[in-house]
Design a protein around this nucleic acid. Structure first.
Lengths: 233, 233
DNA sequence: GTTCGTTTCAAACGATCGTTTAAAAGGAAA
DNA sequence: TTTCCTTTTAAACGATCGTTTGAAACGAAC
């Protein structure tokens, strides 16, 4: 048996999604199955309300498998979050790079910067096979446990660094501080809409029936105007 | 002993904050102490991560007191939420009514409608003695348990009904559907900012140091422009 | 077939959960 | 003081929690 206790419990998880254990062979199936089921249950019910027994029974694996592969529930949460966020942020970056190439040598239009930032959100949260991932991210901001926010912030930071200069170029009338404010508002609108769009349907008595394309257009129109509003500069 | 089991467990909680038990006398102290402590712990750690033992020990009351006065943890959550939301929404309405009187017979300017809707949020979440309440409301949208969302929606509905005609009057260029979309975006920005403003400080590396007044001005500028953006009408 | 490292398994660990119970304590009315 | 109802209390209920254990099952190497 592999000794799992020598590994740091507060594991920094190293550079990426590396499993808690060194494992090779057919185990990959169990490992991945746990990740997939955990992602769905965490998204649906929250972290603390999801039990390891709920995960393992739905995944059809033994209860001890989670601690065998991930060491602890806390580390499982970190792995689930990291895996969920990564491809999502990669899509943002590839959209932005495409927009940069297309606009070269001119600055990227604001709408296209916003599109690259936001489109992956709604592409995800209206896809029945992936919507749980976005719910998961929205939930992770409100959930107890500081280590959860750390994961989200760690993944968000390089995205911000890449988008920031293009926002500054597109919004020369704003101070850097104002850009941060309005970007924060925009992300709030995106996250809230992505996670709670059923509330919009409810509030409008069915008048608004959000889907990916319509939601994207509506929020880009709104955010573009909000960001372009006069600043103090 | 009062028989508590004949009362409906899935209690609709009647018309308001009425306690689970009919009680009169000095008990009010225990009852209120539970509500106050529960509010703080729910806000800080979430509903399912907060235990009854944690509540009662911090409140200095007996463990059984919660079930005696509230019947169940679920009903305690409902009571805490309802009590927290009510004065907050009353402040919104009184601000709106003041703005109506001032503008009479002209329509209320959009900025003032937004001010009435938003100001109580930031008045609350930057007040150290009340900030937990807003965190609680933001959390309640993401938390497991459908009954939680029901409470929030029930309290939100009359607010929407009262504000809606003034939004329509101030935004004649938008369809009703578009107004709902953009109002939803605005509330997303408000809730996200109110609940996670420390993330803004982090993201801006300390450049943005939100306080009630500054946050209010920034978000009203942003949301006004977003709502006034051209529509499809 | 035997060996050895990996993975799975059933079972149990101690801890904590929300809730219930029956008795004790308290306090006003008689 | 006695009565009656309200409130508080300590203790226990069964259930579930995350985690650990040691043995069984598996699969390649020899």
């Amino acid at each position: 048996m592999v000794d799992v206790k020598n590994t740091e419990s507060k594991s920094e998880a190293g550079a990426g999604p590396l499993p808690h254990n060194v494992h090779s062979g057919p185990h990959a199936e169990t490992y991945q199955r746990i990740l997939n089921v955990a992602e769905g249950l965490f998204a649906k019910n929250g972290f603390s309300a999801t039990s390891m027994r709920g995960i393992t029974s739905e995944a059809g694996v033994n209860l001890a498998s989670v601690n065998y592969y991930f060491g602890s529930k806390e580390n499982l949460i970190v792995q689930v979050l990291s895996r969920a966020i990564r491809p999502f942020n990669e899509e943002r970056l590839s959209h932005l790079n495409a927009a940069i190439s297309k606009s070269m040598p001119n600055p990227v239009p604001l709408q296209e910067v916003l599109h690259a930032l936001i489109q992956p959100c709604f592409n995800m949260c209206f896809d029945p096979t992936k919507q749980q991932v976005f719910q998961l991210m929205g939930r992770s901001l409100s959930e107890e446990g500081e280590f959860i926010k750390e994961v989200v912030n760690k993944e968000w930071h390089p995205i911000l660094a890449k988008f920031n200069p293009h926002l500054r170029a597109a919004l020369p009338h704003l101070t850097e501080e104002e850009i941060f404010w309005r970007l924060h508002f925009t992300m709030g609108a995106v996250i809230h809409t992505g996670c709670h769009h059923q509330q919009l349907t409810l509030m409008s008595a069915g008048l608004c029936r959000p889907d990916g394309a319509r939601t994207l257009k509506q929020i880009i129109d709104y955010a573009t105007a909000g960001l372009l509003a006069p600043g103090s500069k």
